[in-house]
Simulated scan of single mutants.
Amino acid sequence: MFRENNEHLQQNLFNNLFTMDSRLAKKLEKSWPAFFYEHVFCKIDESLFSPLYCSDNGRPNFPVNILMGLDLIKEIRGYTDEVLLEEYAYNFQISYALGLRTLEERYFASRTLYEFRARLYNYSLEHPEEADLIFTQFEKLTDHFIKVAGLDTDEARMDSTQIMSNIKLAGRISLAYDVLVNGIKVPISLKMQRPKGLKSITQI
């Protein structure tokens, strides 16, 4: 049975963060887990994944935002599944990023994560006409990042991998300039081989 996870919005005062040295707690609140919690975990739309579960029967699902958050952390940190589950169990930074303030507050077996992935895969096969749930969530997060960063998406950086580019509005001169600037910035680690008789690059 599908149920959204909002428990992270009201924390128990007697948790690991409460007993932590205040200096470490302040440092943690300024590190990547705090950013992840605010701008990724809290922005995961669990309702998107409600079709994966029964609406009125069975045990409540394990929180989707935690499972999705774990898969995102896995990709960001380059973890294997084995390392990911170990970090979730013993690394308080991972717990903090997922809205948990006590280690092992939300224990789950590895099969829970694998079954969630299987549900996503089977749903995409059974409903090919609908948008991919992961991609839809990714788009929502992207829209949030654009808003927070105050980005103008009419023109995009050439090295952007997440914001879709639109070079048509830039024009040929602007495009040539961007290519030239990026070319100049390339480290001269590979020595240019000059053709015979060519004394300098200005002779090209």
Rank of each mutant, 00 (worst) to 15 (best):
M1F: 11
N6E: 14
E7G: 10
H8M: 04
N12M: 05
F18E: 14
T19A: 09
M20G: 05
S22C: 07
L24P: 00
A25S: 05
A25T: 04
K30G: 03
W32D: 02
P33D: 07
A34Q: 08
A34K: 07
Y37P: 00
E38F: 10
S47K: 11
Y53W: 00
Y53T: 00
N61C: 06
N65P: 07
L67A: 06
L67V: 10
G69N: 02
D71I: 02
I73L: 14
I76G: 04
Y79F: 13
T80G: 06
T80S: 13
T80K: 13
D81F: 13
E82A: 15
L84D: 01
E87L: 03
A89M: 11
A89K: 15
N91A: 05
F92Y: 11
F92P: 02
S95A: 15
Y96F: 14
E104Y: 12
R106W: 08
T112W: 05
L113W: 01
A118S: 13
N122H: 10
E129K: 04
A131E: 15
D132W: 03
L133M: 10
F135R: 07
F138V: 10
E139Q: 08
E139P: 01
K140C: 05
L141N: 04
L141Y: 03
K147M: 10
K147T: 13
V148M: 10
D152P: 05
T153G: 09
A156E: 05
A156M: 03
D159E: 13
S160Q: 09
I163Q: 01
I163L: 06
M164A: 13
S165F: 04
L169H: 12
S174Y: 12
L175D: 10
L175K: 04
Y177H: 06
D178N: 07
N182K: 10
V186R: 02
S189L: 14
K199F: 05
I201S: 12
